[in-house]
Design a protein around this nucleic acid. Structure first.
Length: 944
RNA sequence: AGGCGCGUAGCUCAGGGGUUAGAGCACUUGCUUGACAUGCAAGGGGUCGGUGGUUCAAUUCCACUCGCGCCUACCA
């Protein structure tokens, strides 16, 4: 390739993603292509904001690929597309990271003080916060980074304050002392959603509480004996005959001596244990309800760190909860109040971040009254204003929303939106956008002491506002006007409740409309064994390592550093070295994206296997090389009439413009079908199907067949046919690049300029070109039929060659017997393509009734294609081959015969189905005869 | 306990009431074919979890069943 290509430098011989990806991205960003443009219909995706101090994992990369593909597709379809980026402050997660850093310095946040601590978190955010954006850029994300947002920036904070104040004014936010899930390690309340319960091996203690008036005792079971110190009642089921007499009597609490009533309550399951339940209203959710129904006191026995407080008898006060458990059990045993202990599997609630066992604890917290917000949010999904894809997720949404509980939004943390409430003397609380507003509104003088609430809001509170806060709310911005509601939310099912539900509630409340019209729910990325990817399992892969590659040592070091449990390191290291003996090669962003897109089916789990990405990288190489071929053909076009060559070729073979025309029309028609399928798939969020349609077209049709056909046409040198073929090569390539661009932005950009120059479609960038519509590539049934015939012919001969191990270079002599007029015409018109593709040296016709020479044979429609054996073919091997075909044909014969023998089938099946079966039957009968005949001949030969 | 989903080739997954059920990877054989060995050509491999029903026709729809997974709520 000496001459330069249309776009300047010659195309590199090898596909090397690293050579062009970052350059292409920089050009897009500098050109401002990511900003919404044009006056097309708005299309908007708001990113689910990743944690600002984290980095993107495979799940993010997958999700971002989906969002980017959709955004790029809609942009190319002419929509005014906005992909709104941003990051989340991730309250607990981030605070924990910084606290751990402090720990390493031997400091605690309390020593540092709130102000200084928050300053440290901001500093950490500044130093690590750019990582997400950098990763997104390497992935090719076409998000409008000029609009980057942060949940804790000033504009978003303002939205949070505004919403809080308004909800409070409307009575939808309240403060109260309620039983909440308390994390004794992080020392904060959590919402129900942040509790992860899992079955654990525990123990069940059976205790005996004597009746206060003598005469027996009740027996109760508990998994947390220490809570008995806070018991204020015993409950039985009202219909439980065994205990009916006890209702209303008193029991005496061992160790404590308190007399507690025995009450009747429906919540008790008479089947479980003894059917008697100890009631600890301050430390159990069910008991709390029972206590309220029967006016039982709620005695809090725990400190925020889950040590026993002074409400319990002296020997136990001050004990840590698990030590207290032992001590209480022992004391009960000593007193004869412990009847027994047995193993017991039960669900233990833990904090999703700290993994600490949670305690229900009575504390003052802020809550959102959820039911009134849920009602319109349920309606919005019911009436289709929000549509889930796949639809069945709506059921999950409804189930949760219809049983929604109030949402605890206050957190005893320092990193987050501080609650806009001020405490006065006593229990007076004032809510307002600022202290000044509070003073003004409530006419409080400057001397009236106000102290701002210490708590911050749940991170998800600000996330719930994200669909409109990122567009400028509470200002009435143009963006809000234009892009709200968003088009689609792309998210994992794991945060359906955290996010989707709450965004719909808040959107409806504050914007009067849903936040997005569709929710595309994707699966979660797991490793190739179906294991969840996690640092502690040591199976995480950094998406950037797939793009850029990573050597084994670096990978192993990465996986084993910063582990919460350092003792896991050796095992992780071993597994890593075993799985990736050579590290990970650089696949490039497009291969990574394509593999994600291909995996984006509708299930819950997505098993990620590196081999899949390797296959996609191969596809990139294939596309690259195909493009090189196309460009090469254009480059090699000689000026006009080089002496000698065309004439010489013309002598050998009649140039055949019609064959060229058929091939060209065929590939255009096939492209139209592929684009049709890909477009429909993208419209329905089926990136897997879209990828496959394009992949198959490029590899299996364009490369495998069309390029080979084109080579023959160009080799023939007929000027008009060659010119048309060069045009078609380029035109199809150019359209393919546009079609693939949403999924593979980089390679398509790298190749498109040159391709576009050849077709006269040049523009600044493929990313702002039009997505190719299938209507531009008309179906041509006739051309498709012709090429299908040609493929059948070629495959027949290749099968003989392949299975009989004939060398590819060996030209075969082929006799066609039983040709009809159409076969004859096609053999004539397509000979120039047929012969080289099938490796035929000499093609001639044999009269229907002529006795053929000993041959290997293939059936093609009504024809027998015969390759005379002439000592080059093993008759035994050929016979085996045909017998296999015979057996296959017999199976088909049986199936069709069974059908046609059924009068019901003939009477009730649609006529075209019946006709199809008849045609098929006739064809297979014909094939069987011919196979049998051919086998007979081979037998006869072998007998000789 | 309730809800949802899955079970198709050795593995990971598409598919869909009607020819002989597909792909990628893996496997076998043959190939330095003028874009590509990250490749080309040919091939092997599936009673579509089981049972029953609807239907002219079921791998596809329905019921039940077995196995697996997830979510929600939990019995102390």
């Amino acid at each position: 390739m000496s001459s330069s290509s249309p776009a300047g430098e010659p195309l590199a011989e090898r596909y090397e993603a690293a050579k062009f990806e970052s350059g292409a991205y920089r050009r897009w960003e500098e050109a401002g292509y990511f900003a919404p443009r044009g006056d097309g219909p708005p299309f908007c995706i708001v990113i689910p904001p990743p944690n600002v101090t984290g980095s993107l994992h495979m799940g993010h990369a997958f999700q971002d690929t989906v969002m980017d593909a959709l955004t790029r597709y809609r942009r190319m379809r002419g929509d005014c597309a906005l992909w709104q980026p941003g990051v989340d402050h991730a309250g607990i997660a981030t605070q924990m990271v910084v606290e751990r850093q402090l720990e390493a310095e031997g400091l605690s946040r309390r020593e540092l003080g709130r102000e200084e601590f928050v300053r440290r978190v901001w500093a950490w955010k500044e130093s690590s916060g750019g990582r997400i954006g950098a990763q997104l850029r390497r992935l090719g994300a076409s998000a409008d980074f000029s609009r980057d947002c942060f949940t804790l920036d000033e504009a978003r904070s303002r939205a949070v304050r505004e919403v809080f104040v308004r909800l409070h004014e409307e009575g939808l936010i309240y403060r109260g002392k309620r039983l909440v899930n308390w994390d004794p390690v992080l020392q904060t309340a959590l919402s129900d959603l942040e509790v992860v319960s899992s079955e654990e091996e525990g123990r069940l203690w059976r205790l005996r509480y004597p009746l206060a008036d003598g005469g027996g005792a009740v027996e109760v079971d508990t998994t947390r004996p220490e809570t008995m110190l806070g018991d204020t009642g015993v409950a039985v089921h009202p219909n439980d005959e065994r205990y009916r007499k006890l209702i209303g009597r008193m029991a005496r609490l061992p160790l404590v001596g308190r007399e507690i009533p025995i009450v009747a309550d429906e919540a008790v399951d008479p089947e479980f244990g003894t059917g008697c339940v100890k009631v600890t209203p301050a430390h159990d959710f069910t008991d709390h309800e029972i206590g309220k129904r029967h006016q039982l006191a709620a005695i809090n026995i725990l400190t925020p760190r889950a040590f026993l407080n002074d409400s319990v008898p002296r020997p136990f006060a001050g004990l840590e909860r698990f030590a207290a458990r032992k001590a209480v059990a022992q004391a009960l045993k000593d007193e004869g109040a412990l009847i027994g202990v047995r193993k017991h599997r039960h669900a233990v609630p833990r904090g999703d971040r700290s993994q600490a066992v949670l305690e229900p604890l009575l504390t003052d917290q802020w809550f959102v009254r959820a039911a009134p917000l849920a009602e319109p949010a349920i309606a919005a999904v019911e009436d289709g204003r929000v549509r889930f894809v796949p639809e069945n997720w709506a059921a999950t949404y409804f189930e949760w929303m219809r049983n929604i509980e109030d949402w605890c939004i206050s957190r005893q943390l320092w990193w987050g939106h501080r609650i806009p409430a001020w405490h006065g003397p006593g229990r007076a609380v004032f809510v307002g956008r600022s202290e000044a507003e509070v003073r003004r509104k409530h006419s409080l003088g400057q001397d009236f002491a106000l102290r701002r609430d210490d708590d911050v809001l749940d991170t998800w509170f600000s996330s719930a506002l994200w669909p409109f806060s990122t567009l400028g709310w509470p200002e009435r911005t143009r963006e809000l006007e234009r892009f709200y509601p968003g088009s689609v939310l792309v998210t994992g099912f794991d945060i359906l409740f955290f996010w989707v539900a709450r965004m719909i509630m808040m959107g409806l409340r504050f914007m009067g409309d849903v936040p997005f019209k569709e929710v595309y729910v994707h699966g979660l990325i797991r490793d190739h064994e179906g294991q969840k990817m996690s640092k502690s399992k040591g199976n995480v892969i950094d998406p950037l390592d797939l793009i850029d590659g990573v050597d084994l040592d670096t990978l192993a070091a990465k996986r084993t550093s910063g582990l919460m449990q350092p003792q896991l390191a050796p095992g992780i290291e071993r597994a890593t070295r075993e799985q990736f003996p050579k590290g990970i090669p650089a696949f490039g962003a497009d291969a990574v994206r394509l593999s994600f897109a291909a995996l984006a089916s509708t299930g819950q789990d997505i098993r990620y296997d590196l081999e899949r990405t390797a296959g996609c990288r191969n596809f990139c190489t294939k596309l690259w090389n195909a493009a090189r071929f196309v460009f090469m053909q254009q480059d090699s076009e000689e000026p006009e009439g080089p002496p000698g060559a065309p004439g010489a070729l013309a002598q050998e073979q009649e140039p055949d413009p019609s064959a060229a025309s058929i091939a060209n029309r065929w590939i255009v028609s096939r492209l139209g079908r592929a684009l049709d399928a890909a477009g429909k798939a993208l419209d329905g969020y089926r990136l897997d199907l879209a990828s496959r349609a394009m992949y198959d077209f490029v590899w299996r049709e364009y490369c495998d067949w069309y390029l080979e056909l084109a080579k023959r046409i160009l080799a023939d040198g007929e000027p008009r046919a060659s010119a048309a073929t060069r045009r078609t090569l380029a035109r199809v390539l150019e359209a393919v690049l546009r079609g693939l661009h949403p999924i593979m932005p980089f390679i398509t950009e790298a190749l498109w300029q040159r391709a576009a120059a050849l077709t006269g479609a040049a523009g600044e960038s493929v990313m702002i070109a039009d997505w190719p519509l299938s209507s531009e590539f008309p179906r041509d049934e006739q051309a498709e039929a012709e090429i299908e015939w040609l493929q059948g012919f070629v495959l027949g001969i290749r099968q003989i060659r392949g299975e009989l191990d004939l060398p590819p270079g060996r030209k075969l002599k082929v006799l066609a017997q039983g040709a009809n007029n159409r076969d004859r015409a096609r053999m004539e018109s397509l000979a120039g393509l047929l012969r080289p593709l099938a490796g035929i040296g000499e093609l001639s016709e044999l009269a229907e009734h002529a006795e053929p020479p000993p041959s290997a044979s293939a059936l093609h429609g009504g024809m027998r294609l015969l390759t005379p054996l002439a000592g080059i073919i093993d008759p035994a091997a050929e016979r085996t081959r045909l017998e296999k075909l015979l057996a296959q044909a017999q199976k088909v014969l049986q199936a069709t015969e069974r059908k046609l023998a059924n009068p019901q089938f003939l009477a009730k099946a649609p006529p075209q189905v019946v006709q199809g079966a008849r045609d098929r039957h006739a064809a297979v009968v014909r094939d069987l005869e011919r196979l049998a005949e051919q086998i007979r001949r081979l037998k006869a030969m072998q007998a000789e």
